[in-house]
Amino acid sequence: MSDPRIYRLLDASSNRAVEAVRVVEDIVRFIFNDQMMTREWKTFRHDLCSVLQVLSIDMRLAFRQADADVGASIALGSEMQRGSVAEILAANLARLQQSLRSLEEAGKLIDADAAQKIEALRYESYTLAAASQTIGVSIDRLQQVKLCVLIDGGASDQQFCRLIDMLVSASVGAIQLREKKVDDSRLMALARILVAKTRRRKTLSIINDRPDIAALAGTDGVHVGQEDLSVRDARQIVGPQSVIGVSAHSLDQLNRAVLEGANYAGIGPIFASKTKQFATHGGISLLKEVVNQTALPLFAIGGIDTKNVDTVIEAGAKRVAVAAAITAAPDPAQVVAALHQRLDFANSQAESPDENTPSR
Rank of each mutant, 00 (worst) to 15 (best):
I326P: 01
S242V: 01
P332M: 05
K307H: 15
L298Y: 00
A317N: 07
D344V: 11
T280D: 12
L259W: 10
Q334F: 04
Q293N: 13
T306V: 14
H281E: 13
S285V: 13
P240G: 01
H249V: 03
K307I: 07
I267W: 11
S273P: 00
A262Q: 01
Y264I: 03
V291L: 10
A333W: 05
P269G: 06
H340Q: 08
Q241H: 05
T311I: 09
Q236C: 09
I270E: 07
E260H: 11
K276Y: 08
N308F: 07
L254S: 02
F299C: 05
V309D: 10
V336P: 05
A337M: 08
P332G: 04
A321I: 02
I301F: 04
L343C: 05
A337D: 14
T311H: 12
V335W: 10
T327H: 03
E260S: 15
V291H: 04
L298D: 01
G261C: 12
V309Y: 11
A262V: 02
H281V: 13
E314A: 15
H340F: 02
A328C: 11
G303I: 11
A279L: 09
A328T: 13
D305P: 00
E289I: 07
T280Y: 02
A337R: 14
V246R: 15
Q277C: 05
A317D: 00
G245Q: 06
F271C: 08
R319E: 03
L286N: 09
L296K: 05
V290I: 12
P297W: 00
A248W: 06
Q341W: 06
A325T: 04
F345D: 08
R256C: 13
N308K: 09
A315K: 02
S273Y: 01
A279W: 00
V335F: 10
V290Y: 08
L296F: 08
K318M: 13
T280I: 04
G316H: 03
D331H: 12
A333N: 07
R319D: 04
L296P: 05
N263T: 07
I326W: 01
D305E: 00
A262Y: 00
I267S: 09
A338V: 11
Q241W: 02
A329P: 05
K276D: 08
H281M: 10
E260C: 12
L286A: 06
I313D: 02
I284G: 07
